[in-house]
Design a protein around this nucleic acid. Structure first.
Length: 554
RNA sequence: GCCCUCGUAGCUCAGUCGGAUAGAGCGACCGCCUCCUAAGCGGUAGGCCACAGGUUCGAUUCCUGUCGAGGGCGCCA
């Protein structure tokens, strides 16, 4: 049983026994930052004193005394502190139990949750127009969306990764016209696409090919390729065109009309989105009878709600204005807008050679995502994209991430994982048998480095659940960095193997190393970053030589 | 003008349902390899959490306003 369940259960029992009325619904436990405040602390006396008409400090003191009279498992001290906090001091045995749980569970099971069993989630991300290659800015949404999907999977949800393809409309035609013009030796039209890639692709295009269909497939192929390089595998590629064949667009409009969610004005069809939080009503069908971009998107989301209980969309900041109208449209169709979760990723600025590189498909000056991956490697790219909260704008410095690797946290973390495997290899070479866990004396793990490492491991399940709930994979990145730091400290101060180390301690430490391995493997997998088993450096080039740049898949 | 995100150490950023003395990396300075990989470890310096109110036992955190940064506000997509 998790130590928190033991403590909260004992606290509630004690409050009841002390005649506190009402016994609070939730008992909050936290890890105090200050070690003097014990291993765990509760503010329950502060939080519930008022409702129970009691003095918080006195209530805390009574609670502490009562708990100390018959202490819960592992508890060796309880005291009241400050305005009424009740602090628990635990024997290290609670952490030895944590390590046992980690090792028993293994990397497939540890920090896995059942929160979402039976709930279907569609995570839609990237969804770039098939009119050109993905650029560096797309990389953030791509890595983020995939990692959010991994978090949902780890929490037991039934997840589909979906890419929505805008494969009809004006942009497609402009793109095709640009290809055709270049292939014919003409100038690109005014509102066409001007990037260098258009020139390259036009040269590739076989004579007689349909520029629209050929360009479409060329762009989509490029998307697929770079995403695969980043270990991002979509389960579903949803074509906008397919909704014309299925009649989904017409059906959606008829549905909206049926519930009075649209009206005709100035020859156009308007959606009453302002009735559900949007700034103004939006046009669905233009005066010329053509649908706006919004119309098929509404139909698409209606389709998704037919396939899932929850929708997660990843939009770039430049599309955030879209959120209100989409929520309104779903509300008008009778869905709960809460079930459409839209994550906004702030923009990525790219830096190279100390100056910013502008991203613009129109001017043609852009850095392709494929170039970023080539330049810094898939692992460094993913880790860097997932380093920050998506609420913060990011400056991705290509020179820094690729060449100054000592400033790059991905190598710090991967190095910890490589060190773990080095210890395991050394133990094998020495013929050292770890033996069964049940035979190991984990109580020998008492060094502060060992304690810190086990504490960090204990936090992983909670971190995963929160990161999923908040759609915040960067919290996993932070955890992984923290665990790596704990491990490097342990590695430095606690020898696992050697003549001076008691064999029983070696066994216990090998199990701790195994626990760290499991934790890092879980965390890195959630980030989609490789976990290399060895890393060596070429000192002449300062380039790490490892699976980091030879990885195949995650 | 309205909407979204943000404002925390010199720089880049974390900060759990509102908790006790606000953290990390980098940069700066000082130390540590006879030993499982020193791309590692330890220490020092560095803060009016943009500003002003409010809510309460308690606010970096929640609410309102001001200032500042980025982005968005079309019968374009």
């Amino acid at each position: 049983m998790d130590v928190r369940d033991i403590l909260t259960g004992a606290i509630r029992d004690a409050l009841g026994a002390l005649g506190v009325d009402p016994v609070p619904e939730v008992v909050q436990l936290e890890r105090p930052g200050n070690p003097e405040h014990g291993d765990w602390s509760t503010n329950v006396a502060l939080a519930s004193a008022k409702a129970a008409s009691r003095n918080p400090r006195e209530m805390g003191a009574e609670l502490a005394a009562h708990l100390l009279a018959s202490p819960p498992a592992h508890v060796v001290g309880v005291e009241v502190a400050g305005p009424g906090f009740v602090n628990f001091h635990l024997a290290d045995s609670w952490l030895h139990e944590v390590l046992t749980e980690v090792v028993d569970a293994g990397e497939d099971v540890y920090a896995r949750h059942e929160l979402g069993v039976g709930t279907r989630v569609i995570v839609e991300f990237v969804s770039a127009n098939p009119t050109g290659p993905l650029h560096a800015g797309h990389g953030r949404g791509a890595c983020y969306g995939d990692s959010v999907a991994r978090l949902y999977e780890r929490c037991g949800y039934d997840v589909v990764r979906e890419f929505y393809i805008n494969d009809r409309g004006l942009q497609m035609q402009n793109f095709a016209d640009s290809l055709a013009a270049l292939a014919a030796g003409d100038e690109v039209p005014e509102d066409g696409y001007h990037g260098q890639y258009v020139v390259d692709w036009a040269a590739e295009m076989p004579a007689g090919a349909d520029p629209l269909e050929w360009g479409y497939s060329r762009a989509l192929g490029a998307h697929r390729e770079v995403l695969e390089d980043l270990s991002i595998h979509f389960d579903s590629w949803f074509s906008e065109r397919s909704m014309i064949a299925t009649g989904a667009i017409d059906d959606t409009l008829a549905d909206l009309r049926g519930v009075g969610a649209v009206y005709d004005h100035d020859g156009a069809v308007w959606l009453r989105s302002s009735e559900h939080g949007d700034d103004k009503d939006r046009v669905l069908v233009k005066g010329d009878g053509q649908p706006t971009y919004l119309m098929p998107d509404v139909a698409y989301h209606r389709d998704k709600f037919g396939r899932a209980d929850r929708l997660v969309n990843v939009f770039g900041a430049d599309h955030h204005g879209y959120v209100a109208r989409m929520h309104a449209a779903m509300a008008l169709l009778g869905y709960d807008p809460e079930d459409l979760r839209i994550a906004i990723t702030q923009l990525v600025a790219l830096q190279r050679g100390g100056r910013e590189v502008r991203l613009s498909k129109r001017t043609g000056e852009m850095v392709e995502l494929a170039d970023v991956v080539d330049e810094v490697g898939a692992d460094a790219a993913r880790f860097t994209y997932l380093l920050l909260s998506v609420d913060s704008p990011q400056t991705f410095d290509l020179d820094l991430v690729s060449s100054q690797v000592n400033e790059n946290p991905v190598f710090y973390v991967q190095y910890a994982h490589a060190r773990i495997h080095q210890i395991v290899r050394r133990a094998d070479e020495a013929g050292f048998q770890r033996g069964p866990l049940s035979a190991a004396d984990l109580s020998l793990l008492t060094h502060s480095r060992e304690i810190h490492l086990m504490r960090a491991l204990h936090e992983l399940p909670e971190t995963v659940a929160r990161a999923c709930r908040e759609h915040a994979p960067h919290q996993v990145t932070s955890w992984v960095r923290d665990l790596a730091a704990s491990f490097h400290g342990f590695y430095h101060d606690c020898r696992v193997l050697g003549d001076g180390v008691d064999p029983a301690l070696t066994v216990a430490r090998l199990w701790l190393v195994e626990g760290a391995r499991i934790g890092l493997a879980v965390g890195l997998d959630l980030l989609g970053v490789g976990a290399p088993t060895e890393m060596w450096w070429d000192e002449s080039t300062d380039v790490p030589v490892s699976e980091a740049n030879q990885r195949e898949d995650v």
